[in-house]
Write a protein that binds this DNA or RNA. Sequence first.
DNA 1: GACATGACGGCAG
DNA 2: CCTGCCGCCATGT
Length: 111
Amino acid sequence: MPHSTTSDFFSRVYDVVRLIPEGRVSTYGDIAECLGMRGSARMVGWAMNAAHSHPDIPAHRVVNRNGMLTGKHHFGGPRVMQQLLEQEGHTIEDDQIMDFDKVFWKPTGAV
DNA sequence: GACATGACGGCAG
DNA sequence: CCTGCCGCCATGT
């Protein structure tokens, strides 16, 4: 496709995020890499910001490579993201997901 | 059209 | 180990 638009990029990001299983989490960088935009993790986070218009996007399952809830302030409040994750069985301590390496889900081949 | 910003990540100091 | 800078791409001013 000679004409790649941002809308496509957003749609792809949403598509991948939607595929994250409940009880699992992924990272901005890996999602970006999965979409062929390695190094552009910021775009993924930015897409998440726009994802607020899409209730079907479990944006709380996307964190940075450290498993830290860096985007918690972009939800209803600074607690919402943590609460959502805890409801899915995660343990958060100091804005960081415990056993992150065990709940991490890589969108390899998802798209 | 240039400058600053951002839910990131990697590397250098 | 911690802090800081640069690269990444799209948006707003």
